[in-house]
């Protein structure tokens, strides 16, 4: 069981929260103008990062509010939580792209 620091309520057990998937995915403003690929990317493509992952949580059995978190998916350690609309306090580590030409 994880302890999660809700930015509004403080530390609470994981059972009070619902995971909301990858954070900072903006819904395209004009879906009708998207290509099929752009819409599929919005719906389905996820970074699935092995490392520091920016993700949404909702304090369902508490204040009910959504917030964002940075969590290391190799250890499940939370590095930070922050309110919706705020920038991540430290840059989320991007998965290194190792393709070589």
């Amino acid at each position: 069981m994880l302890l999660i620091n809700c930015p509004y309520c403080g530390e609470r057990p994981e059972l009070e929260f619902v995971h909301g998937g990858q954070a900072h995915i903006a819904r395209p403003g004009s879906p009708a103008e998207c290509s099929d690929q752009q819409w599929a990317d919005y719906l389905y493509r996820r970074d699935n990062i092995k490392g520091v992952h920016a993700e949404r949580w909702r304090h369902t059995h508490g204040c009910g509010r959504f917030f964002n978190a940075l969590r290391d998916t190799t250890s499940d350690q939370f590095l930070a939580t922050y309110k919706i609309g705020e920038q991540p306090p430290v840059p989320a580590q991007a998965q290194p792209r190792k393709a070589t030409a």
Partner: peptide, 18 residues
């Protein structure tokens, strides 16, 4: 479970979460 990690090395993004 590491399919996303490996495939990203070739620039292929997958609709997968682990």
């Amino acid at each position: 479970g590491h399919s996303s990690v490996i495939m990203r090395m070739a620039g292929v993004d997958l609709p997968i979460e682990s």
